[in-house]
Design a binder for these strands. Structure first.
Length: 121
DNA sequence: GCCATGACGGAGC
DNA sequence: TGCTCCGCCATGG
């Protein structure tokens, strides 16, 4: 399976109403520090694939623009808003709240993460 | 085959 | 907070 296939598969797993960052997708695709490749992969597949590319944004919570997709950034934002994702006046998404956390869904967010030293070998 | 570029990330200032 | 620089790799000229 190509790295791209893994990237696409990962993006497809992003649930409704959630978003993920390029770095996150890269890491989940076993490609740490290759966020750029993820963006490039999505750029190539977005035209002819059923990948929810609109749920992938940069680590700053903003939607990147590109000369090729001018106007589409607004579409992406609309799609996310339609899924319940809120944007700040600056056009940023609250990653802290909407970032997809695969196989992990801690009900609490304010509580500090306890380190189970007694359980750690 | 080399060089410049790009939907990014993170560290440094 | 915001800007700059570097790394990383695939693609196109």
């Amino acid at each position: 399976m190509n790295a791209y296939e893994i990237i696409y598969a990962t993006v497809r797993q992003i649930p409704y109403g959630k978003v993920a960052t390029y770095g996150q997708i890269a890491e989940l695709s076993n490609l740490p520090r290759r966020a750029r490749l993820v963006g490039y992969a999505l750029f190539r597949v977005a035209a002819d694939a059923d990948v929810p590319w609109h749920r992938v944004i940069n680590a700053q919570g903003t939607i990147s623009e590109s000369p090729f997709r001018q106007g589409n950034d607004y579409l992406q934002r609309s799609l996310l808003e339609a899924e319940g994702v809120e944007f700040s006046p600056a056009g940023k998404v609250d990653l802290r709240k909407y970032r997809w956390q695969p196989e992990v869904d801690p009900p609490i967010a304010d509580a500090p993460i306890a380190l189970p030293e007694s359980d750690c070998p």
